[in-house]
Design a protein around this nucleic acid. Structure first.
Lengths: 186, 186
DNA sequence: AGCTCGCATGTCAGTTGCTGTCATCACTAG
DNA sequence: CTAGTGATGACAGCAACTGACATGCGAGCT
């Protein structure tokens, strides 16, 4: 072949490394591309903007969430449906991904522009779950509240997952956090 | 005086009008500035970026939220503290602001970049509330969950507030939504 | 073998968002 | 009257994108 395959993957990898060492703002798209032997123009063919290079595969989570919602039994309560969705999402985070998730999160935590993108992605995820729940007959406002609270729980669990010394898998942590959420309103 | 006072206000006003008619992306910062007799450079002296022109005064909401948290009695439950914070926030939205909020929201709904900024601002608001709750002795994860869920309730209430035909003030609507949230986990 | 077509990429020019720097000019305090 | 302050203008420049067009490998067809 004329060019190496897997351009998006290589770009993402190089981007994370550069962001982690040099910083996000201090790294240009052209530099990332150059690091893997490509041009700036090609970078923007694979990613709609510079931030997006850190957010590939988020649509994958959306799919998992939808399957989780639909996997719940017909007469499940909103809280049970939510639990099913969150189990499906967290299952996508295997332990091998943990180091990568950690550095990625460190990069995001240092840059507001990346935080915006992250919040937006999570917001879309919540909206999708809410919509799927509403399609199952849950009242729209209730579904929105449930989905957003569920995503909040996911965020808390995720941060705990990548914390130093934490050993348990994310699927286990999320259960604890959901228990805390349930206790909250009592 | 050599120049008209209230430059930020006039810029914000002009920006909203231009965004609403021409569209956000189709409006340049220079055009907004020109519309009120200023230059692009001056625009960016008042707003750190183009989006920010629609998000002035959000820090005002943060202050209100903090006061709301601290206004709750000492031994209040997390849910009661949250309610107090949300009452404080919603009080900032008087009925005169409703038309302005409506068009502003329409503009935001049409543009992902603006949605990102909005989500980020709400995320900051939630984090601030959570921090204040934690300072009062609420366990950190619980506080985060509560604050995020509360902000979710605010979003739902706000959308209802600017919906056509809705007459009730936001402070009343939020109570209903919080009831729905409580019912969710029971 | 020769041909054509598609697809990932390169090249180049151009717009826009945003920043640093320096100048200007009313108004104000001394 | 002079020095200083504060909001602005003027200008240059970089980085993030985008559109248009060219290029060349490899696959499939004849």
């Amino acid at each position: 072949m004329r060019w190496e395959p897997g351009a998006p993957d290589r770009l993402q990898q190089a981007a994370l490394e550069l962001f982690a060492t040099r910083g996000y703002e201090e790294t240009t798209a052209a530099e990332i591309a150059q690091a893997v032997g490509l041009t700036e123009r090609t970078f923007f063919r694979h990613f709609k903007d510079k931030r997006e290079v850190l957010f590939r595969g988020q649509d994958h989570l959306v799919k998992a969430a939808l399957q989780g919602v639909n996997a719940a039994p017909e007469q499940a309560t909103p809280m049970e449906v939510l639990t099913s969705a969150l189990q499906a999402i967290t299952s996508a985070f295997s332990d091998e991904r943990r180091p990568w998730s950690r550095t990625r999160q460190q990069v995001i935590d240092r840059n507001p522009a990346l935080q915006e993108r992250e919040q937006h992605k999570l917001s879309i995820l919540a909206a999708t779950i809410a919509e799927a729940m509403a399609a199952r007959g849950v009242a729209a406002p209730t579904a929105t509240l449930a989905a957003r609270s569920g995503i909040a729980a996911f965020e808390v669990a995720f941060l705990r997952w990548i914390a130093d010394g934490e050993q348990r898998p994310l699927t286990v942590i999320i259960k604890d956090v959901l228990d805390e959420l349930r206790a909250l309103l009592r």
